[in-house]
């Protein structure tokens, strides 16, 4: 089904920041999303806004992008209700709209309430311009492949909803394969891309340049690992990575940890944290340290750290501004188990 209208979230999606936090000098449009917006407009696809902001935020977005939005829903209700109102106002079918939001909760909420809609993260949206749903005339092989990935994800989600059992049972049922391995020079572009696009699972919140990644991959003092994910529904390729090194003292430090949100709920981040703890312990380390920027956006990462036994001292800064907390996990005692579907260096 062709998408006729894209419904955009504003904060940290179409705008490169939060409108109300900086209302005196509102954030500029996100350059990647602005490019997508213009490309899709040129193909005749219309746009709408669904935002938890006062109406002036939508007017600001229209002015700053130079685009007419066909509809704008502003307010603090459920995003799915805003999406439904836009669908009704514009006289569209629910399967003719896409919804883009950086927040995984909002995406999950809209997916459940309007299952026919195409629900995308900004990371997905940057690629989706090449999908058949957005570009009947100009589909490339790569675009078609990535569109297929999304279809696979939807089939997996549908089965997950119908599946009775724990998450691990579902992952086994799917034939999940998580492959952790040493990064090669050729992985640098994708790792750079992940450092730019991941927010909910990213410990630093900063892009890492390809050149820096190449240097770290070549450095004998650092370990750069990649994570690849596949199951019987499809192959997601390289979905995550991390950079770590020995020290300080008898510990190991992970200076960057990141994962695509398309791997969410599939045991990937947990597998990576468990493998890091196991390899550091094998190396004789007594502690695994993961310094992590604390922001409202990477709460999913903090949940994964908490679930994997990491703790940070509470006295680091204030709740108002982002700060780096030193999450650490002791390596005394038995190492965390690694599920059977994970293959990794040093593991049988």
């Amino acid at each position: 089904m062709m998408v006729k209208c894209v419904i955009w979230d504003l904060d940290n999606t179409l705008l490169s920041g939060v409108y109300l936090e900086t209302a005196a000098r509102p954030p500029a449009p996100d350059p990647a999303m602005l490019a997508v917006l213009r490309q899709l407009s040129a193909r005749g696809i219309i746009h709408a806004i669904a935002t938890r902001n006062p109406p002036e935020a939508a007017r600001y977005a229209a002015a700053v992008t130079g685009l007419d939005f066909a509809a704008a829903e502003s307010g603090w209700g459920r995003k799915s209700d805003a999406v439904r109102r836009i669908i009704t106002d514009l006289g569209l079918g629910p399967d003719a709209v896409a919804f883009v939001d950086d927040d995984l909760y909002e995406r999950a909420e809209v997916s459940l309430a309007v299952p026919e809609a195409l629900v995308l993260s900004p990371e997905d949206m940057a690629e989706a311009v090449g999908w058949p749903e957005f570009s009947p005339a100009t589909v490339t092989a790569e675009g078609a492949r990535r569109g297929e990935l999304y279809a696979q994800r939807r089939r997996r989600q549908e089965e997950a909803r119908a599946f009775a059992g724990s998450r691990d049972e579902f992952l086994r049922y799917c034939g999940t394969r998580v492959a952790i391995g040493p990064a090669a020079d050729a992985d640098a572009p994708r790792l750079h891309e992940l450092s730019v696009r991941t927010h909910q699972f990213n410990t630093t919140g900063e892009a890492m340049a390809e050149a820096e990644l190449r240097a770290l991959i070549a450095s004998p003092a650092h370990q750069v690992a990649t994570v690849r994910l596949s199951d019987r529904f499809g192959d997601d390729g390289l979905v995550g990575g991390c950079v770590s090194h020995r020290g300080p003292g008898p510990g190991w430090t992970v200076t960057l940890l990141m994962m695509s949100c398309r791997a969410l709920g599939r045991g990937v981040i947990e597998a990576l944290l468990a493998w890091l703890a196991r390899s550091a312990a094998r190396d004789g380390a007594q502690e695994l340290v993961v310094p992590c920027l604390v922001t409202p956006r990477n709460v999913p990462l903090r949940l994964a750290l908490a679930a994997s036994g990491f703790r940070a001292p509470e006295d680091t800064g204030t709740a108002e501004r982002p700060r780096v907390a030193r999450f650490a996990r002791t390596l005394s005692g038995p190492p965390p188990p690694l599920p059977g579907w994970v293959t990794a260096p040093g593991e049988p």
């Binding site: 947990e270 999913p300 949940l303």
Partner: peptide, 18 residues
């Protein structure tokens, strides 16, 4: 809530917190 049994993870955890 974390670990075997309930197995709260990133997605279910975020849904719960919201």
């Amino acid at each position: 809530l974390f670990g075997a049994g309930v197995g709260l993870d990133s997605l279910s955890g975020v849904m719960l917190l919201r």
